[in-house]
């Protein structure tokens, strides 16, 4: 019983029944095949990262007139909310000026789309996004294909290394391509399988080589809020409404009778 348990255990740990045929590999294989493939793959990944950075779409800006427009709206809202902190005179001045600006539509962005919603397909930002996605896919795809061809072409037809874990015979065709042995254990694999393992496993390496963990990119996520997107109220209507609100706004300044209140408090 103990013996059978032991044999099952050794079968699990050794991974396959029976002894694995030991091959003696030329140690130069390590230095002239394994290392070059690894180095090329790491360098290609780094190069691809830099190319992706270069062809990445520029951070989208908002046109200045659009910003001016929304800033005026915020200014009116701020005056309505916090006007009590101003003296009556100052509030009156600001109020008159803002009413004039907002009701007159002085800083309103002139749109040349005659009230029509822009078609989502003709939006230049969107097409630019799709284009950059296609470029990103190409930048992923082309180097992979080239390296695979390179490995298959130059390093085919011999056993490169022994995997430390067993695989099912199903993998034999893929991982031992070009090795003409019918019943060699699947753990002995050719160079293309090192390529596959690298493709799967190099992400952590890239992360360690390329990322700067210390700095958190504050600027990346911040987009200035803008008014007048689809579904939002149009800035013209907002401005008109704010002008009306300002016209009827009553100002109760916190400075009214402030001397009296201070004297009462500290007397």
């Amino acid at each position: 019983m103990a013996l059978s348990v032991w044999s099952v255990w050794s079968l699990i740990t050794a991974g396959s029944a029976g002894a694995v045929a030991e091959l003696t590999l030329d140690p130069k294989l390590k230095y002239w095949v394994l290392l070059p493939i690894s180095i090329v793959m790491v360098l290609t990944g780094i190069l691809r990262q830099y190319i992706m950075d270069l062809i990445a779409p520029n951070t989208k800006g908002v046109p200045r007139v659009k910003l001016t427009e929304s800033q005026w709206i915020y200014k009116a809202q701020a005056l309505l909310a916090n006007g009590s902190n101003l003296s009556a005179e100052a509030f009156q001045l600001r109020k008159e000026h803002l009413i004039e600006v907002l009701a007159g539509g002085k800083y309103l962005v002139k749109l040349n789309t005659d009230g029509q919603a822009p078609s989502p397909l003709s939006d230049p930002n969107l097409s630019e996004n799709m284009f950059s996605m296609a470029k990103g896919n190409l930048a992923n795809f082309i180097p992979q294909t080239i390296i695979m061809w390179w490995v298959n072409h130059f390093f085919a037809g011999f056993v490169l290394m022994k995997l430390p874990f067993p695989l099912t015979p199903r993998f034999k065709e893929m991982l031992q391509s070009g090795v003409m042995t019918a019943d060699l254990d699947v753990r002995w694999v050719s160079s293309i399988s090192w390529y596959f393992i690298s493709v799967l496993g190099l992400n952590p390496v890239y992360n360690l080589l390329l990322s700067d963990t210390e700095s958190i990119d504050i600027n990346a996520a911040q987009q200035p809020p803008t008014m007048g997107g689809p579904g939002e109220p149009q800035p013209e209507a907002v401005m008109k409404g704010l002008a009306n609100d300002l016209t009827i706004a009553e100002n109760e300044s916190c400075f009214d009778d402030i001397e009296q209140r201070v004297l009462e408090k500290y007397s």
């Binding site: 394994l34 022994k162 874990f165 393992i197 952590p204 390496v205």
Partner: peptide, 19 residues
């Protein structure tokens, strides 16, 4: 999964280099 594949790659690599 990401760490597992990275581990397998490093394991295979050093296993082949040392062994």
């Amino acid at each position: 999964v990401r760490e597992l594949t990275g581990y397998v790659m490093a394991w295979t690599f050093s296993y082949a280099l040392v062994g």
